[in-house]
Write a protein that binds this DNA or RNA. Structure first.
Length: 244
DNA sequence: CCCTGATTCGC
DNA sequence: GCGAATCAGG
């Protein structure tokens, strides 16, 4: 199997979406996770929280000036520590599916509605900011705690009215959220298959602390319920396994 | 042990 | 350029 443009595109998108190399390899098929990682690095997709990468930033800082002749254990690359901490860069996006980080809490699923229109928690909030009352939260379909509207953002944040999706390289995804639009604040739930012309991401505002909006968090993080009458089709990111 | 990503190095 | 082998942290 070779790295066609489409496969490379899929790799980029999935890698940027925070999926693991193993998952990407499965989706692509015909390649090992090592191949995926190797390719990702060759593409310059580096970064991403890695378990075995803790120094470099620390080493560079700690060894910035010590008098003794710098031993330089390893061949220092031309670019001395790209300083990746230029931005806040808060939550690394966890992989959806496979080991949901949320423990299956035995909660009552209050809304069985289909997604999309239930983003508002059934909690009424006063228009006036009174004394900090005990925080009331509703529990999402998956057992995750929803954020109340007041917690969604800083109370006094001017919230600059920025276009979420400025310009699109292609007409097919005009108005859609492409990979280029992904950031820490918008839902990364993929719609369609990578490589296809209309592939895009949800693009809604994320449920703070999660990579997805509230609606898609409900899909991504599902509590283990009695198998009784659970929806048969568990929606999966990237439209599920590609039918080949 | 399992998982992860990073790196090396022969091809 | 590719990816198996290897390394190393969680």
């Amino acid at each position: 199997m070779s790295w066609t443009d489409e496969r490379i595109d899929t790799l980029k998108k999935m890698w940027d979406s925070g999926l693991t190399a193993t998952q990407i390899a499965e989706e692509l098929g015909g390649v090992s996770r090592n191949a995926v990682i190797g390719k990702a690095h060759r593409l310059g997709l580096q970064s991403r929280p890695s378990p075995v990468k803790s120094n470099e930033a620390k080493a560079a800082a700690a060894e910035a000036k010590p008098a003794a002749a710098a031993p330089e254990p390893r061949a220092a690359p031309p670019a001395p520590a790209p300083v990746v901490e230029a931005k806040p860069a808060p939550a690394p996006v966890p992989a959806p599916e496979k080991r949901a980080p949320i423990a299956a809490a035995p909660v009552v699923v209050d809304d069985e509605d289909e997604d999309e229109d239930d983003d508002a928690a059934p909690v009424i909030v006063d228009a006036e900011p009174k004394a900090p009352a005990p925080v009331l939260r509703s529990v999402g379909p998956g057992g995750f705690l929803r954020q109340n509207p007041g917690e969604q953002s800083a109370p006094i944040t001017p919230a600059p009215p920025r276009r979420l999706v400025p310009a699109k390289p292609s007409d097919a995804i005009a108005g859609k959220t492409s990979l280029l639009d992904l950031n820490d604040r918008i839902c990364k739930w993929p719609l369609g298959h990578p490589g296809e012309p209309d592939f895009h991401f949800c693009g809604d505002k994320v449920n703070p602390g999660f990579p997805y909006c509230v609606a898609h968090c409900g899909h991504a993080y599902q509590a283990q319920l009695p198998r009784r009458d659970r929806r048969p089709p568990p929606p999966m990111p990237f439209g599920g396994p590609r039918v080949r």
